[in-house]
Design a protein around this nucleic acid. Structure first.
Length: 421
DNA sequence: TAGACGTGGTA
DNA sequence: TTACCAAGTCT
């Protein structure tokens, strides 16, 4: 029963220090004391030139000198204000690894219920390793970035095969595992084994960018930021330090309205000293997201079953199920698109009937409109031309298959329609 | 090295 | 409503 947390003695004593975080509402209004931004155009890369002289804490020597005070202030603050998070109550490398993967580009609040359910479903590495991928993806359904789930599954098998079922303590071995990069490796090794390995997640980037008033977007200064993170890390308490600096970024040194008056690093922060905390870190402007129009078919057979297909492993939503369809070509009606795509991808003939629903959805790098039509199967056995698998399923069975978020609205619409008769 | 890769929250 | 952001990794 690996579900329950096995607490070490060190853990028990440490837990008492983590009080629930209380954010004061005073901080927000206090910030308005700071005058208007002095840095025109600082939010864009082109304004970099106006930041001359901002990098006060530039040299490694300066940081080296300030490091002991910074560490002490941060760890004291963490002891009083650190968040009480379930994975921090564990020293089980497996549980910590799961949390680190789930937390990639995902907020704590979103992860919490998934984390609890996951450990109940897959209590140990061995349980995860021997599970079916479909079960793994179903547990991940809704969290996004599904390569994380596929990599988690594969890595569990590698840990069983190559590491005796125990997450490796060696950095090079850890980073060689699928889905584990430099930051995640550092997060796991420091949290699980208290090893002095630096991290550089979104929180740390923002905190450090402000601490030194980094005159460029973090993406353009990764080497420098990694160097800073390594230099500032407390070699005596790497576990608490890494957790503490992330908490600082997540609760005080936030993107908007940072709570500088409560910050343990206020006295050392170059951005605060120059009143640039609202302008930093710098960001690069992006091009607007492309928008795709998609034709989607909900195909019924004579028995009222519905045709679904499993997407290929690689790429967007890999391994998940979906309703077949494809991109609408220029000068093509949605109905023509649906009929054409189904013939091309599944080699069957269908009749396109009425529109079921229209779903708008935004992915990280493009937007889609799903134009969903009810269809009737006319002839042909579905072939797996553009997918890994096809299946006729009943409405009761459909809930056991992992679907992307945007498909959830389609399933709801099908159910609503069936109930109406 | 920059783009692919999800979803929910927020201003 | 739109745009940006949040405990990144892979190619």
């Amino acid at each position: 029963m690996g579900v329950t947390n096995k607490k070490s003695k060190a853990q028990d004593s440490a837990d008492g220090r983590y009080g629930p975080k209380q954010m004061s509402s005073l901080q927000a209004s206090a910030l308005s004391i700071n005058g208007p931004p002095t840095l025109d155009g600082a939010a864009t890369l082109d304004g970099a030139a106006t930041l001359d002289g901002a990098a006060t804490l530039d040299g490694a020597a300066t940081l080296e000198k300030a490091a002991p005070a910074l560490r002490k202030a941060l760890l004291t603050w963490y002891g009083e204000q650190g968040r009480d998070l379930p994975w921090r109550r564990s020293r089980d490398p497996y549980a910590i690894w799961i949390s680190e993967i789930m937390l990639q580009q995902t907020q704590v609040k979103t992860v919490l219920p998934y984390y609890q359910r996951w450990l109940a479903t897959f209590p140990t590495v061995a349980d995860l390793a021997k599970a079916e991928q479909q079960t793994v993806l179903k547990s991940w359904e809704g969290l996004g970035y599904y390569a994380r789930a596929r990599n988690l599954h594969r890595t569990a098998q590698l840990i069983v095969e190559r590491h005796g079922g125990i997450f490796p303590e060696d950095f090079d071995a850890a980073i060689a595992l699928p889905g584990i990069g430099r930051t995640t490796a550092g997060g796991i090794l420091s949290a699980a084994y208290n090893l002095p390995v630096a991290i550089l997640d979104g929180n740390v980037k923002r905190v450090l960018a402000r601490l030194v008033a980094l005159p460029k977007p973090p993406a353009k200064a990764m080497n420098q930021l990694w160097q800073l993170s390594e230099q500032i890390l407390d070699p005596q308490q790497p576990r608490d330090f890494n957790q503490a600096i992330m908490d600082l970024g997540a609760t005080l040194c936030t993107r908007h309205r940072p709570s500088c008056l409560l910050c343990p690093w206020q006295a050392h922060c170059t951005a605060y000293r120059q009143n640039l905390q609202s302008e930093l870190p710098m960001t690069e402007s992006r091009a607007p997201l492309p928008h795709k129009q998609i034709g989607v078919a909900v195909i019924y057979d004579q028995d009222g079953r519905i045709l679904i297909d499993r997407r290929k492993q690689e790429g967007l939503l890999g391994g998940l199920w979906e309703f077949p369809g494809g991109k609408i070509e220029p000068n093509e009606t949605v109905e023509d698109c649906v009929k054409r795509e189904i013939k091309e991808e599944l080699a069957i003939e269908i009749e396109v009937n009425d529109r079921l629903i229209t779903v708008n959805h935004a992915y990280s790098h493009f937007k889609v409109t799903l134009n969903v039509f009810n269809c009737t199967h006319l002839s042909g056995e579905p072939q797996t031309i553009e997918c890994d698998e096809v299946k006729w399923v009943t409405l009761d069975e459909i809930d056991s298959y992992p679907f992307p978020k945007a498909n959830g609205q389609i399933i709801d619409a099908i159910k609503a329609r069936v109930q109406q008769g």
